[in-house]
């Protein structure tokens, strides 16, 4: 006889608010729970017990899944920040490698490509080896960034399917990161989303010494960048509006709504052809 208690002990059979019991309860070993539940009066008979167990496990799993999925947005935030860190650090170190490399060998160049060349060279002195090893670090940081990007491309559509499809996975992840989470993004106004990532420019504007920014990171989206400068403001506004909607659908329902994207496509088409002005 164990001293373990079943999930149902302490649960009101008429109300079946059992999530805490099922999720957080433990037992050292299994026991004939259906019999125990009937003996203790929790269930009338075995069938009644299984009916109750069914309701309790399905309800608990539903809530637990929703909660866990919501927490996944933070994983995406970490991944995109790590990717940016890797890229930034790789570029910074690549500059050092280029400067140093230029002083030791005849060829010059820059960026990760040049670092890759240096990393492949046979070193012929101690300092040469230092330089080569540094270049290797650049290359491996760059590879790390690429792999993080691949993971983000796979993961973002799971976290925010509509947003990822409309913005592209990496921009979707950036928007989530800049707002602090999918929930915060879903609660943002479209005006805020439009300038996310342009906070410096926005504050300068608010201090009265700059024009108001027309776009933040959404600039990287083809619908903004690929629209001629006169109409970029309208394009940015239209894009931000739909992205905000997409984030809301993703946060509140999780359902796929491809028509949002189709509406955006139409809108951008109109802005670009009719040359709608600001």
């Amino acid at each position: 006889m164990t001293t373990d208690t079943g999930w149902f002990e302490g649960v009101d059979p008429d109300d079946l608010d059992a999530r805490d019991a099922i999720e957080n309860g433990t037992a050292e070993s299994p026991a004939a729970w259906p019999d125990r539940a009937v003996e203790s009066g929790f269930a009338e008979d075995e069938d009644d017990y299984y009916d109750k167990l069914r309701e309790a496990t399905i309800e608990t799993a539903r809530e637990a899944v929703a909660e866990r999925e919501r927490a996944d947005d933070q994983q995406l935030v970490h991944a995109v920040r790590a990717m940016d860190d890797c890229e930034r650090t790789a570029n910074e170190l690549a500059e050092r490698v280029a400067e140093w490399g230029g002083s030791r060998i005849s060829e010059t160049g820059g960026g990760v490509a040049f670092a890759r060349e240096i990393a492949d060279r046979e070193p012929d002195s101690d300092l040469d080896e230092q330089l080569r090893a540094l270049a290797e670090q650049v290359v491996s940081l760059d590879e790390r960034a690429t792999e993080l990007r691949t993971s983000i491309e796979r993961f973002a559509p799971e976290v925010a399917p509509n947003l990822a499809s409309m913005a592209g996975p990496v921009l979707a992840a950036r928007l989530i990161a800049l707002s602090g989470g999918l929930k915060q993004l879903a609660r943002s106004t479209s005006g805020t989303v439009q300038v996310l990532g342009a906070e410096d420019a926005l504050f300068a504007h608010l201090r009265g010494n700059a024009p108001s920014p027309k776009h933040g990171v959404i600039y990287t989206h083809e619908y903004v960048r690929g629209t001629d400068p006169d109409h970029r403001g309208s394009a940015a506004r239209a894009l931000a509006g739909k992205l905000t909607l997409a984030a809301r659908v993703d946060y509140y329902s999780g359902e796929r709504r491809p028509e949002l994207e189709a509406e955006l496509d139409d809108r951008i088409e109109t802005i670009r052809t009719r040359g709608e002005s600001e």
Binding site: D4, T5, G6, W7, A21, I22, G25, T26, A27, E28, S29, P30, A31, A32, W33, P34, L53, R54, T57, I58, T60, A61, A64, V65, R68
Partner: peptide, 19 residues
Amino acid sequence: FPLLKDARKPETYAHVVEP
């Protein structure tokens, strides 16, 4: 009966699963 649990931690579902 669906259980969102880690199969490496049977103690987290032994209070639900019978033999």
